[in-house]
Amino acid sequence: MKLIINELQFNYSSEPLLENVNLELKPGELVSIIGPNGAGKSTLIKCINRILEPEGSIKIGEKDTKKMSRNEIAKHMSYVPQSPENKFPTTVLDTVLMGRRPHSSWRFSENDINKALNSLELMGISDFALKDYNELSGGQQQRVIIARAIAQESNIVLLDEPTSNLDIKHQLSLMELLKELVQNKGISVIMAIHDLNISARYSDRLILMEKGKIVAAGEPADVLTEENIEEVYGVKISVREENGLLHIIPLRSL
């Protein structure tokens, strides 16, 4: 289903953190939000999910999310936070089962457990199913949370810097998995990400943010220009194309 964001605005103690954000996301699209620290990437992700309450409209298909219950939104959208924590002991399987909450009630059905196990297998972490979530490494925890988002079976997945805790191999395999989900299941993905090379390589579109505003949007090659990056990040880069892939080489800070 299409996600349409119209004139989104979010203030925190009368300081605007997001200003006039307009965005459309088609099914089967992978969009990355890039921008320096404090640009509002995480805030935008949270506003889209209505974890924060912004002004302006967010529509899923024809429906405004303002008129939907939390549970209804949760059936359409899942969220992978930046540093997922849990203060109390809980098994990996129980953590993934949380993703079934919007579809079930107090007790999880056989079907819920099967779906949770499937997504664990998809993320290659079935072996940890009954381990304590808190005993896993940061990268493993990240994969558990992504497995939870898959078990949630929403058609829009929001991720807040999902690769920041992962080594290079797991970064690439995660991105390939997301790409696969997007292409085969028609899921759409929005993620905030710092790594420009990874975002260029896997995204259909990039959104460049600065101080709560979108300053550039479009295909990676159009957004990741030397001028744009210099202006927003204050760094000198060189962009090269090799084997059809975009490479960003940072040169120096300005």
């Binding site: 219950s69 936070p81 949380m98 929001l158």
Partner: peptide
């Protein structure tokens, strides 16, 4: 009845909200 919702809150307020909990 609310105990399962509290399990989700243990994973953080943001996570609980995104999973449909008020």
């Amino acid at each position: 009845w609310k105990s399962n919702d509290l399990n989700l809150i243990a994973a953080g307020d943001d996570t609980a909200k995104s999973l449909g909990i008020n």
